[in-house]
């Protein structure tokens, strides 16, 4: 068990370095220039632009920049934004809590809505409730997230005035974005929970339980649901990546602070150190979350514990 975990951590480190290098290459190949987002290029002279490029160090050869980047990284220096010289690490640290809050709230929405709908749908399979639950679940994954967000905003914020349209302070600002993002995850979880509940219901041990005279309710909730939760937990790990991706759009729609917006802006502005930093950070989060998910398996499912 311990050996397996160490192995995972080591290979994760490799993955993180790899993704960092990959991002550097992609960003290097990006056309465009951070200079274009720093000054009004129509009135700047070619000399001004060249000077600025030189000051930023982006006129050096590729390998030199790459070596420089990893050299600094080894010393724990994530670099600073080329746009406004802000150090990258504190910048991420400052924006991460808001994204974390959004992701956690969304995951909660996903799991609660997803499991309830999934269970309902499995218990009442092929009945109207099943169909409604599945359609609602599917709607979550079928609507473009920015559209869902804007619709929720128009109805609950502008029309009804229940929740603020923007901002990232206080739980009230969290409701609409978490709902938007959570419904996507819920769609996946409904499907997962329903399928695995149906499988478990047909499994031999449940049939045995039933034969032993356990009530249908007890069979469903005590045994079938417990087993069905495994894929739901797995989905959280898989969804961690999706969540971060979702924040890129959702944070823009609801004007929230967060790393999703930072990286979207940085990609557009070709602010390499920031893109690097955020990707590095998010790979780290992704790897950690999945490690935790794997470990939690051992707790939920004894079979995995034995095989590991």
């Amino acid at each position: 068990m311990l050996k397996a975990v160490t192995g995972r951590i080591l290979s994760s480190l490799l993955v993180i370095v790899g993704s960092s290098a990959l991002v550097f290459v992609i960003m290097y190949l990006l056309p465009g220039d951070p200079v274009a987002s720093m000054i009004d290029i129509s009135s700047a002279s070619p000399e001004t632009i060249a000077n600025l490029r030189h000051q930023l160090g982006i006129d050096r050869p590729f390998l030199l920049q790459l070596a420089d980047y990893f050299g600094k990284l080894l010393r724990g220096d994530f670099g600073q934004s080329v746009l406004n010289s802000e150090p990258v690490l504190p910048k991420i640290a400052k924006h991460f809590p808001a994204t974390l809050a959004l992701a956690a709230a969304s995951a909660a929405v996903s799991v609660i809505v997803g499991v309830i709908l999934g269970v309902l749908s499995a218990i009442h399979r092929n009945k109207p409730i099943d169909l409604i639950a599945r359609i609602v679940g599917l709607l979550g994954i079928s609507m473009p997230a920015f559209w869902t967000g804007i619709l929720l905003l128009l109805i609950f914020s502008i029309r009804l005035g229940w929740f603020p349209a923007m901002g990232s302070d206080g739980w009230r600002t969290l409701v609409l974005p978490a709902l938007t993002l959570g419904l996507i995850g819920a769609g996946f979880i409904v499907r997962m929970v329903r399928n695995s509940m149906l499988e478990v219901i047909g499994d031999a041990f449940v049939v045995t339980l039933r034969a032993k005279g356990l009530s249908e309710r007890a069979v469903m909730y005590r045994h079938a649901l417990r087993n069905a939760l495994i894929p739901a937990v797995t989905m959280i790990g898989v969804l961690a990546g999706e969540m971060l991706a979702g924040t890129v759009v959702i944070e823009t729609v609801f004007s929230r602070q967060g790393i999703g917006r930072i990286i979207a802006d940085a990609i557009m502005a070709k602010d390499l150190p920031v893109v690097q930093g955020v990707i590095l950070f998010s790979s780290l989060v992704y790897v950690v979350v999945n490690l935790l998910v794997d470990l939690s398996y051992a707790v939920i499912d004894p079979r995995v514990r034995r095989s590991a």
Binding site: L153, G161, A165, G167, V253
Partner: peptide, 15 residues
């Protein structure tokens, strides 16, 4: 507030 709907909506809703 970069998103138009959000920015305009916030004035309409008094935020």
């Amino acid at each position: 507030a970069p998103e138009e709907a959000t920015r305009i909506g916030s004035v309409q809703s008094g935020q």
